[in-house]
Each structure stands twice: as C-alpha cells, then as structure tokens.
C-alpha cells in the first residue's frame, strides 16, 4: 500500500491527470492533494473574506474532480484549473453584490489568519527562506492584493502566483493580451506604491 502511494507521489502532473481521466481515483486524490495549497493561496489573494476561502477551495476541488474527464488536453490542466478558480470567484463577486455584507462571528477578518490556533502550532515543514518574510508582511501583501479592483487582482494573481502567460490569462478573463499587459503593469505599480514602506 505504502509503495503504491510513493509511486503516485513520484508521478508528474501530466501523468496524474492522464491516469485520473482514466478513472484512477488514487491518481485523482494525489493530483488534488498537490493542487489544494495552490488553489487555497489563489482564493486567499482574490477573496476579501477570509472565511470564504476554505469553502471556495473545496468547491473548486470538487469541480476539478467532477469535470476532469472533460479536459481535452492534459497539458492544459493548469490553465483549465485556473479557469475554474476564476469563474468561481466571478460567481462569488456576483453573489456578494446581491447579498448584504456579513461578518463572521468566529473570526474577525484581519487577525484570524495570524492568530488562530492552527497557525500558532509550529510548522515543521517550514523552509528557511520562508522565514525571511514575516507573518505581518504576508498579511499586508494579501490585504493589498485583495483590495485591488477585481480585474487587476485576477490578472496579477494568475501571473505571479500561477505563472500563467499573458495569452492564457487573456483567454481565462475573456480579454485581449494588450488589456492583460496593462492590467498587470498597473496592478504592479499600485502594489509597489502601497508596499513602498515595507520592501
């Protein structure tokens, strides 16, 4: 059993997608496990509400699991995954514009990430280079990005966090490459201005 699990761990994303498309649930599980942190981080930067991020992450993972067989080219997985993430975020924006703003009683918006019990348990997997950046700076950057106008933050997150090309971002956001270029450029200068005193 354990040797089988290591086997899946050694497969690359392309191989996992191909196996999962053939109905291999173990491959699908490994694929989701590999992607969940990535999806979680993306929603953390897109959504202004901390408490929605977990729900959105699981919703996106469920969508990936259910619809993976419809993906025609396994090598376009990353772009396809981000399309799902972006569309979920658009839906969320639409929902938010209709319902009044609510505040969670369980955690107050700004401090929950930094001070919840889960975060006070030391992470043994933390690598040295991640220690260079303080928790506060990460929170500040997250807040700065999630406060950008919708299209700007989608463009900058897809570019910097997901590493997608301008062409892929243009396709996902249904806009031209020129628009993507100027959105990313403007998002960067806005963020640089906002973070001037910290970097």
């Amino acid at each position: 059993m354990s040797s089988q699990n290591t086997l899946y761990k050694n497969l690359n994303q392309y191989q996992l997608v191909e196996l999962a498309q053939k109905g291999d649930l173990k491959a699908l599980e490994e694929l989701l496990r590999n992607e969940q942190k990535n999806i979680f981080a993306t929603f953390s930067y897109l959504s202004n509400k901390r408490e929605d991020v977990f729900d959105l992450t699981q919703e996106a993972m469920l969508k990936v699991a259910k619809n993976l067989k419809n993906l025609k080219e396994p090598k376009h997985f990353k772009s396809w995954l981000n399309k799902i993430v972006t569309n979920l975020f658009y839906d969320e924006l639409r929902k938010c514009s209709r319902r009044p703003d609510t505040l969670s009683i369980d955690d107050d918006n700004d401090t929950c990430g930094a001070h919840s019990i889960v975060n006070s348990i030391p992470d043994t997997k933390c690598k040295p280079n991640e220690k260079c950046i303080s928790l506060e700076l990460e929170e500040i950057i997250r807040a700065e990005i999630s406060n950008l106008p919708g299209q700007f933050k989608i463009a900058i997150v897809l570019r910097e966090l997901q590493g997608l090309s301008y062409e892929e971002i243009a396709d996902i956001t249904k806009s031209s490459i020129g628009t993507v270029k100027s959105r990313i450029s403007r998002a960067r200068s806005k963020l640089q201005d906002g973070l001037k005193s910290y970097i």
Binding site: L25, L28, E29, E30, L32, R33, Q36, K37, N38, F40, A41, S44, Y45, F54, T57, Q58, M61, L62, A65, G113, V118, N119, I121, D123, K125, C126, N129, E130, C132, I133, L135, L137, E138, I141, R142, E160, L161, L191, L195, I199
Partner: peptide, 22 residues
C-alpha cells in the same frame, strides 16, 4: 517578496481536503 508571501500563504493551509473530495 510577492513570491515569498505566496509561498507562506500556501503553507497556511493545514488541512487536507483531497480525501474528502474523493
């Protein structure tokens, strides 16, 4: 700096949802 922040955010997810989704 952005990339370091992203890395840190990724590691903020301490739960594993994959089994539940399957």
């Amino acid at each position: 700096t952005l990339h370091m922040a992203f890395q840190k955010t990724k590691n903020n997810l301490k739960k594993d949802f994959s089994g539940g989704i399957i």
